[in-house]
Design a protein around this nucleic acid. Structure first.
Lengths: 229, 229
DNA sequence: CGGCTTATTGAAATGCTTCAAAACCAGTGG
DNA sequence: CCACTGGTTTTGAAGCATTTCAATAAGCCG
């Protein structure tokens, strides 16, 4: 597996298949991280901007009271710390969900290129805008939707994101998410998520198993969201 | 009231008092908008980047089912569309809460300056990062906190933001928010917000009246958040 | 004043959580 | 290869936080 080139990722909307690294960005050989390990811890200093080449990860906020809120799910092609070409500290930890391979590019070189190349700067801006939009959609979900609608919308959004990555198209409808992760993302209890997934399974909308979930009837899933949305 | 200069806003962390416009940014005389009017509608094209000079506003998502989710509160010095120096369409409407004065700067000239001046680009990046952080904090609130904790944390965060603006310091503890707005921000019903505000008032933590709320005991408010956070 | 938006309060309904217990599955070491 | 272990999923029942419904009161604007 070759690394994602961050410039291509930026310019081609985050897919760009697997291209050779561009020497000027001072590419760093990809690192491998085992499932459940922490990729970036809170407060860590970053001199590199990482892109996920393979595997899934998630961004997590640990609250003092022990609760955990998942802030976003990261899939191959995603930039691990998108707001960080200039800023160099991590606010929320990023953890591997499955085994993950990612590679890093020099922050300072990337900065320089962003200023040289307007197209690149625009692309990077769009990357951030997209992330922001995801966050806002999530906010709307948590603020205005019922538990079932949240689960449905979450899956619909996730599938939409994956569909934008041609290289992931084949497996796009199987997501490697355990239910506790979905619960922590949507602000629900794992038990309730289990109940919701059960009913969806009975209606043949999804299949599920230990640690994964397969979308069978995307149209119906959209309909669940649309029902009250 | 003189307009906020967007460069100063960026470089000086969003305050910078009221400075004369910088001709190179093609400053536009500030516009006045009455309370409750829409400043920017969804889908509108923007050739200018706006900064609020006076008054409060909010960013709103209108759901098909009629529910409304407030995405952020905007105070004087805030950039109305922070991700839009490059992108030119509006995803969520922005409405005036009180009477608002704002002024616009040419998007294209700002773009050019961002590329010329590294300090400015960094400052702009930080602006976006701050916005993003606000969104994520909100996500954590909605996902993990009880209703009372949400209200308390919301106020604490808001006061913290205002405190960073020296020019607003005097009035920093009176926020012109009707309860329905707080409810729509935190994903609660207005009735429940009313109940929560009532108990806070009985405990002498806040005072409240039609359309405003005064923070009396910030320390206690923080304690409410800290209790379970 | 009259009308409209905002705030308050109560009682009933509900959606979700919590607690508890069991089944299940994947990996580990004997 | 099997039994053990730890994490995940499932299911049930009770409890609670928040919503909904309904009705009233209270400021504010023309």
């Amino acid at each position: 597996m070759r690394p994602f080139n961050i410039c291509k990722v930026l310019l081609d909307g985050g897919d760009a298949a697997q291209l050779a690294p561009e020497s000027r960005l001072d590419w760093q050989a990809h690192k491998k991280i085992a499932a459940h390990k922490i990729i970036k811890a809170v407060g860590e200093q970053l001199d590199r901007v990482g892109v996920i080449c393979a595997g899934w990860a998630f961004r997590l906020a640990q609250l003092p009271n022990g609760r955990r809120q998942v802030l976003s799910i990261l899939v191959p092609g995603d930039v691990i710390t998108p707001t960080r070409p200039f800023d160099d500290t991590v606010s929320y930890s990023v953890q591997a969900l499955t085994d993950v391979r990612y590679c890093g590019y020099s922050r300072s070189l990337l900065n320089a290129r962003l200023r040289e190349d307007e197209r690149l700067l625009i692309a990077w801006t769009e990357l951030i805008t997209a992330e922001r939009k995801q966050n806002l959609e999530m906010l709307i979900d948590l603020g205005s939707l019922s538990a079932e609608e949240r689960v449905a919308d979450f899956l619909v959004q996730l599938v939409a994101r994956l569909a934008r990555r041609p290289s992931l198209a084949q497996e796009a409808l199987v997501v490697p998410l355990p239910q506790w992760l979905i619960a922590a993302t949507l602000g629900l209890s794992t038990e309730h998520v289990s109940r919701i997934v059960s009913t969806l399974r009975q209606r043949n909308v999804v299949e599920s198993g230990r640690g994964f979930l397969r979308i069978v009837d995307l149209r119906e899933l959209r309909h669940v969201v649309g029902t009250r949305t």
